[in-house]
Amino acid sequence: MSGGQRVTGDSRIGRRGFLAGAATAAAGASLVGLSPADAVPVEAGVSKFAFPAERTVRVLVTGDAGTGTRSQWAVADAMREHHRRQPFSLALGLGDNIYESGPNSGDDVQFADKFESPNAGLDFPWLMVLGNHDTSSIFGGDGGWLLRGNNEVEYHAHSARWWMPSRYYSVRLPEENPVVEFFVLDINPLASYIPPLFDPYWTVDGQFMNEQRAWLDRAVAESPAKWKIACTHQPYLNNGPHGDAGRYEGLAIEPLNGIHAKRFFEDHVVGKCHFILSGHDHSLQVLEPTSESKGTRQIISGAAAKTVGAEPKLTPGGTHPALFENYHQLGYMVMELTASTADLRVVTVDLANGGADEAFARRLA
């Protein structure tokens, strides 16, 4: 596999082995979670876009894009124009990659309609995160069919852009003496609206999450990168309608309120990573670090195809201090990282005329 990806263990699962494992899981036997130890290799004939070797890393940060609609295309057009003027090194796709319910296989035509075609010309690696709409069962976004996410992992073998060699993984840039390491996490088992109560593999303290916790603790502790960035779909802190972890959707009912996601963030991410980059909420938010976040800054970029609306119904208690918030415009973010600085820009996109405006620019560190 090409540079930057951090994996451990035996990576020789292959497409045939993956499909066999998925079929076994569907029959009710042991599930295939696809941790970094089971990373999917690239198929022969597929040439992945290379990771950058430069020590200035310009990252396109986008989320909740995969609709295939005019809105997604308008934002992608703006990103293409931005890339022409100031080339991106890579992109982060912060989940809900295939609306409304996720792909039905690793070669589903939805990958072309909702990812490849809209992003034509954005020819660099896209680090992809699994979202609740990518793992749907009964209704779109319920997160109740966790195994469905493996279809997006399988697609890693087929695409030059799409980078998801396993359900969670990390990438260092550059590989030697890295400026940044991205830790792409899958917290859907902790945040789904239909909790995995009947399958021990996916439960809060099941094999998948315990292995992910152990991997993340070790990977963050061992990382030599200047910037350590956690990439999730569901946020830890959020002023928008989906709410904070532990108060998702304004609910008091455990575990539907994401209490286990809150504990995961607090035990394994905050105070250890510099930033949490998330989607889920269809908004653009740059929150301030707080004592609650132990200095870790939460950033939300989930407006690549949908918005909350002109008069957002914000979740009670969503009052975290923010440098920037926008709930009614489409848009994306650009993070530029060097060995000593972290700069962020927020770009909003007007669906009516396709115009793009820089709405926020700040050196965060």
Results as ranks from 00 to 15, higher is better:
94 L>C: 10
108 D>M: 03
301 S>M: 03
242 H>W: 01
211 E>L: 13
348 T>I: 06
318 G>R: 04
79 M>S: 02
287 L>N: 02
253 I>L: 14
182 F>V: 02
53 A>W: 00
310 A>R: 07
337 L>Q: 06
250 G>H: 02
63 G>A: 12
62 T>K: 00
87 P>G: 14
257 N>M: 08
90 L>Q: 02
186 D>H: 13
148 R>V: 00
119 N>D: 01
331 G>V: 03
42 V>Y: 12
119 N>H: 12
55 R>Q: 13
45 G>S: 05
9 G>D: 11
228 K>Y: 15
219 A>P: 01
98 I>G: 07
344 L>H: 02
100 E>H: 10
79 M>D: 06
263 R>S: 11
228 K>S: 04
206 G>C: 04
114 K>C: 09
37 A>T: 14
346 V>I: 05
166 S>E: 05
206 G>L: 08
354 G>R: 01
178 P>H: 00
93 G>V: 07
217 D>C: 08
208 F>K: 15
21 G>C: 13
21 G>M: 11
104 N>G: 14
102 G>F: 12
91 A>R: 06
281 D>R: 00
278 S>Y: 03
302 G>I: 03
321 P>E: 06
24 T>V: 14
344 L>E: 02
83 H>W: 08
62 T>D: 03
280 H>I: 00
351 L>R: 06
211 E>D: 14
232 T>C: 09
122 L>K: 14
257 N>K: 03
226 K>C: 01
71 S>K: 10
106 G>F: 13
236 Y>I: 00
232 T>Y: 11
280 H>M: 05
79 M>F: 08
43 E>S: 12
330 L>D: 10
135 T>H: 06
110 Q>E: 15
101 S>F: 14
100 E>W: 11
167 R>V: 13
347 V>P: 01
157 A>S: 15
27 A>G: 07
96 D>K: 11
229 I>F: 11
288 E>T: 13
360 F>P: 00
301 S>A: 14
239 N>I: 04
129 V>M: 09
290 T>I: 06
329 Q>W: 12
310 A>T: 08
65 A>H: 13
229 I>M: 02
283 S>M: 04
180 V>Q: 03
231 C>T: 10
182 F>H: 08
319 T>H: 11
119 N>T: 11
202 W>G: 05
298 Q>N: 07
30 S>M: 11
13 I>V: 15
244 D>F: 05
132 N>S: 05
220 V>S: 12
31 L>C: 09
320 H>R: 03
225 A>M: 06
260 H>Y: 14
261 A>Y: 01
15 R>G: 04
209 M>G: 03
13 I>H: 13
156 H>V: 13
294 K>V: 04
297 R>E: 00
167 R>I: 11
59 V>H: 04
70 R>T: 14
181 E>N: 08
284 L>D: 01
51 F>H: 05
131 G>H: 06
217 D>M: 08
306 K>I: 13
